[in-house]
């Protein structure tokens, strides 16, 4: 079992953030919401580990 990493882990944080905003550019609120939902699912599948996912769900709510 691996633990959820809550330390900085992204190489080039500003670049990533820009990319994240870029996919939402010009999108309506509904389109953006749909994109975010798909993104959550894609990332969750990539992580796979149920314990990590649980910890991430909790971290997001807290």
């Amino acid at each position: 079992m691996s633990a959820l990493n809550l330390k900085p882990n992204i190489d080039g944080p500003d670049d990533f953030y820009e990319d994240l905003l870029a996919i939402h550019e010009g999108k309506s609120k509904d389109e953006s919401d749909a994109i975010n939902a798909r993104l959550v699912l894609i990332l969750a599948n990539h992580i796979g580990d149920r314990d990590v996912l649980k910890a991430a769900l909790e971290a997001a709510v807290a």
Partner: peptide, 20 residues
């Protein structure tokens, strides 16, 4: 509904979403 539709949308292209 948002997540439901996201799953359906993804399942068309990506195998990972089909079990959902």
């Amino acid at each position: 509904r948002l997540f439901r539709d996201a799953v359906l949308h993804l399942s068309e292209k990506y195998e990972f979403a089909r079990p959902l």
